[in-house]
Design a protein around this nucleic acid. Structure first.
Lengths: 211, 211
DNA sequence: CACTATACGGAACCTGCGTTCCGTTTGTCA
DNA sequence: TGACAAACGGAACGCAGGTTCCGTATAGTG
């Protein structure tokens, strides 16, 4: 969290994904019943704890919340960052799913998506905050997914601009930055408050050409 | 940095300021020549390093940058937080000075100030970021100054709203959050880039009633 | 029910960082 | 220039948190 490394350590690069399937929950070996249960618990606990306290929270807290020992946690996720990545990945998927929703009005769907993004970010605020800041460097898989997200935003933005409802003098990255920035100040993590909604609305209004 | 405490520890509350003068550089005793020089160097180094790497940077880095030993650093500032506070305090003063500038059009002066704030935040981004996030809790003196800043924003905003140029359905806190959020994603720390400026502009436009 | 691979828990270890301590250096004043 | 308080530097300390290790428990199987 302090310094930046160029993502990717000595381990698997991105040339790893092609061969195997998306690897939903298990793949190599069946995984014993209790192990599967614990893995799930850990993921849930991590999601909760990271969202509330940010990535700086000690790993013991996650383990405790999940009701397992640290050893168990490390058996499932080789590193704190790996756990974080797993959690973020899930959330990114949710967000990307939202983008897939149909909409005929380009401008409207652009703003709708921004609001979606706002909700997500505000809800799990520290988590996404960390994601968005350059502070954390996500390993290959996460970075790739973030790239996809950016692509989507770019596309939506492009269409909305073409449609004439959104100003063109701003990049997709900047749009993301604005929304994320607005939400990173959300108060109560765990609930999207009116304040956050208002802030996102201001950003959206600032992006409009009409009004 | 991880959790939150209610500001103010066992030490001096705010009931400390009234008696003494603003305490510009020295007060109790003349301070030896080299000591004064070092103190200055440390402050400058800290400002630079904190701005670039954020408050998480190890204190040794500051000491090294300043060309002094850690011992010396601690002689001048009893604690890392105290050093941070000293640095932030200075910057807050600059910002508050900007607010004092005259302007006849309430709306214009409101936006002018937001831009000022944007510059400051973007320039020293991690620093202000840390300040704005609830993550760091500033001790009494800082908190007080931040309070003053909020008051100013509130006043400017109120006047601008009365003047009819700015929407009323948003609080001063939220306005600050928006600007800070927008700037916390600034790229190169040390230089305000066009990107940041564009983002602040979007926020300002979103706050306008006219357009 | 016995046997074994798998998984568990948490003490122990290691590193990084804030802070303290103390022997040495240096500015200042007579 | 000599004496001494003030200031310096950096090794050493303590703690916090990530990671490893290993003895113990248990699901799954014949």
């Amino acid at each position: 969290m302090t310094s930046r490394r160029s993502a990717r350590g000595t381990l698997a690069g991105d040339a790893e994904e092609p061969p195997a399937a998306p690897v939903p929950e298990q793949a190599t070996r069946p995984l014993r019943a209790d192990a599967a249960r614990n893995r799930q618990r850990i993921l849930e606990a991590a999601e909760e704890v990271f969202a509330r306290d940010g990535i700086a929270v000690p790993i013991d807290t996650v383990a405790e919340r999940a009701g397992v020992g640290v050893g168990t946690l490390y058996r499932h996720f080789p590193t704190k960052e790996a756990l974080f990545e797993a959690v973020v990945l899930r959330r990114l998927d949710e967000l990307l799913a939202a983008v897939a929703e149909p909409a005929d009005d380009a401008t409207a769907s652009f703003f709708a998506f921004l609001e979606q993004m706002g909700e997500q970010v505000a809800l799990k605020h520290d988590l996404f905050d960390a994601l968005a800041e350059a502070g954390v460097d996500l390993e290959a898989r996460c970075a790739a997914k973030v790239g996809t997200l950016k692509e989507e935003v770019r596309a939506l933005h492009g269409r909305a601009v073409a449609h004439g409802g959104v100003r063109a003098d701003i990049t997709a990255d900047e749009v993301m930055g604005l929304v994320i920035g607005a939400c990173s100040h959300a108060q109560a993590p765990g609930a999207v408050d009116d304040s956050t909604r208002r802030m996102v609305r201001v950003v959206c209004d600032g992006l409009r050409t009409d009004r």
